[in-house]
Design a protein around this nucleic acid. Structure first.
Length: 422
RNA sequence: GUGGAUGUAGCUCAGUUGGUCAGAGCGCCGGAUUGUGGAUCCGGAGGUCGCGGGUUCGACACCCGUCAUCCACCCCA
């Protein structure tokens, strides 16, 4: 029989790794709560139009990376490729703008993009992200960046760098675009095929191209920087000042353009050189027009998302206890009456709040003790026919090898008394 | 979507120019110890050599195709 294997690009997180994942998630939650962000849980799939409208119809994500399928009535649904769209949808749908308090959310969960898997890139991957709604204040940007920075540092990730750029307002980019396009046309033959296409589809991205010839060709391209309004300039300066005030080191990168259409003004990215080609650990930016574009009231907003798999690749092993949890009591029931007595004893202990396990495959005391040893049990409750006949069990301390008789009639109490120190 | 590398036992890997090459270590199960774990010794189970074709007297090895994994491009978290 042909075995069914997991889908390409998805991964099982096995028990050996879940403690690391819990550690990462708990660290992120703790910091987000500290900053006043509250957890929001939104659906894993949404109407396709939501993503097309928010992420941008001509982005790679929407053009070729979405898991889209038809519902039974024919409506087009899509597995979420990122978390912002759904969060914004929920924000609008539940009229959160009318709430008197700041609406700051965090979320975590799986995202889906149909890409070719490689180091640090999967088709189902996990993100932890935050969205801060309603505050058009540079401190909101700095706050979100600070949160990202502190989470990553608390996790002791190596070789981190924060890059930041000012994308300006929609109007700024509208005035810049024609000059950039005009310039790109003069160097079109020096650009890679991809970038030649981008001139019409997404000229800003040409600046972010990694191909060396493109980098050179755009060396003297007009800078968005020079087209920014006074307002945009001031705003960005204030964000940088905020980062300075919080002692967060950053590097300006005027080429940094994010892949999602909704960003404006502040965009940022934290990378690690300890990763492979996919070196972005977390990234985000401001998206002031998105809520309105999706039918909500004009609402400034800023947020970030971080890739949990990439973080998991970087977290030092020492930080969390990866050792499998020790078993408290192993119950070794064997023999014609001991087997049944052991099964009952297991239940008895558990109902008394004492963690207990057994291996039903073992039929001899030797096999039971071997399993108890492998499970690193503190104690083994030995229940053979002789013990059952006498109405007792033998509680063996696996470390000291000392054994005490316990009464089956008062099993919980007797065992509790003996295991007290553990 | 494109390119490169790699697919042999549960795991890590040997396998010489196609001719006992179906192997090792670890792990697993059992015995030595008729009811006391970890060590040691002995024994045992476990593999359509990714899959499908082809070349050949003969293929784990060579050729073609295919699938999967990894890495890179692209893109992004």
């Amino acid at each position: 029989m042909e075995i069914i294997k997991a889908i390409r690009g998805v991964k099982d997180i096995l028990p050996e790794e879940t403690s690391k994942w819990r550690f990462i998630e708990e660290t992120a939650r703790r910091w987000a709560s500290l900053y006043g962000f509250q957890e929001i849980r939104v659906p894993i799939f949404e109407m396709t139009a939501l993503f097309a409208r928010s992420i941008g119809a001509s982005t790679d994500i929407v053009e070729k990376e979405m898991y889209t399928f038809q519902d039974r009535d024919g409506t087009s649904l899509t597995l979420r490729p990122e978390g912002t769209a759904g969060t914004v949808r929920a924000y609008i749908e539940h009229h959160r703008a009318a709430q008197p308090t700041p609406q700051k959310f965090f979320y975590t969960g799986p995202m889906f993009r149909h890409e070719r898997p490689q180091a640090g890139r999967l088709r189902q991957f996990h993100q932890f992200g935050v969205e801060s709604f309603g505050m058009a204040d540079p401190r909101a940007d700095a706050e979100v960046i600070a949160l990202l920075w502190h989470i990553l540092h608390d996790l002791s990730l190596p070789a981190l760098a924060l890059e930041i750029n000012n994308l300006g307002s929609v109007e700024d980019r509208a005035s810049y675009r024609p000059s950039l396009i005009e310039y790109l046309r003069t160097v079109v033959e020096r650009l890679c095929a991809n970038c030649q296409r981008r001139i019409t589809t997404n000229p800003l991205r040409v600046l972010d191209c990694k191909v060396a010839s493109c980098q050179e060709a755009t060396q003297s391209a007009p800078r968005l920087n020079h087209y920014l309004s006074e307002k945009s300039h001031c705003y960005f300066s204030a964000v940088l000042k905020g980062l300075d005030d919080l002692h967060i080191p950053y590097q300006l990168n005027h080429r940094l353009v994010r892949g999602l259409d909704y960003y404006c003004l502040t965009t940022f990215e934290v990378t690690s050189t300890a990763l492979g080609a996919q070196n972005a650990v977390g990234a985000g930016g401001r998206y002031d027009g998105l809520v309105e574009a999706l039918g909500g009231p004009p609402t400034p907003a800023v947020g970030f998302a971080m890739g949990l798999e990439r973080i998991a690749l970087l977290v030092p092993e020492k930080l969390f206890s990866s050792s499998v949890q020790r078993v408290l009591v192993y119950v070794a029931g064997f023999g014609s009456s001991g087997t049944a007595a052991g099964f009952s004893a297991l239940d008895d202990l558990r109902r008394g709040g004492i963690s207990a396990v057994s291996d039903f495959r073992a039929t001899s005391l030797k096999a039971h003790l071997r399993q108890a040893d492998r499970l690193a049990a503190h104690f083994t409750l030995i229940l053979g026919d002789d013990e059952v006949a006498a109405g007792v069990g033998i509680l063996r301390n696996m470390d000291t090898k000392t054994q005490h008789s316990v009464s089956l009639a008062s099993l919980r109490q007797d065992v509790s008394a003996l295991i007290a120190p553990c």
